[in-house]
Amino acid sequence: MLYVELLIQGLIYGCMYAMIAVGLTLVYGLLRILHVAHAGLFALGGYLGLLLTNATGSLLLSMPLAAGLVGLLGMVVYRLCYQPILDRPPYVALIASIGLFIAMEELFRLIFGPYGLTYTHAPLQQLFRFSGVTLRAVDLAIVVGSVSLLGSLAWLAKNTRTGIAWRATVDDPQMAGSFGISVLKVRYLNFFIGSALAGIGGIFISLLSNLVEPTMGGVPSYKALAIIVLGGLGNVGGTLIASLVLGVVEAFGTIFIGDYLDRDAIAFGFLILVLMIRPQGLFARS
């Protein structure tokens, strides 16, 4: 029974990682930029979701609203931070991104205070029991929410004109452009969807711990990078599987080797191990 529970917890961790990492790998696939400030948008999602839920009393209303706002801000980040420096070497954008992330953390602290915020009535706290396994509604919501959101994203990418244009641009931006696809629109869409997903990820985490704090983007800022490397940079499917695998490895690792290594050390130890065997990541782009 313990193993089943650990596996479930690992999948919950994995789903949360996936929500954050997908946006990051989308940006990398399209622009070859390591978008560290993505973790700042994740934290912003947590803040907006919580503030809107506290104000309206409805998570169902505030979640899409917060995700939309974070998505729009993601587009603004692209326009103001990345677009002007796209012709520079990639490390320029990386430095700008790290700077933006730190600025966002400190802004959250200045605006919302250093203590972190909590839900006045934390939603989704009902308990469910399935033959010995106790789960909170929020655990289920995370798994169902992430799977359905990421699943529909995959379906859209395969079956709609926009999705095909998007994939074409990722594969070969020049060729896509000469076929009449607006590369700029694809980039905006990319930032919107990636950021909105991260925003929802932030709300999920805030529901799990009933806490949003200025530094909540700290761990995702580097762990999501590890995940997209593991998944083969720019590969969405690989990123999803890598997220789940890493979540499960962490859940079991915390219990069985937690005395020697902390959760991050387990994650990065696993990353090093995988890269030694498969330097191109688990699922490299062909």
Partner: peptide, 14 residues
């Protein structure tokens, strides 16, 4: 054991 950055304790709780 857990690290100061952890907020999700699902595995330990199990």
């Amino acid at each position: 054991q857990y690290s100061i950055k952890d907020r999700q304790f699902g595995a330990i709780v199990a």
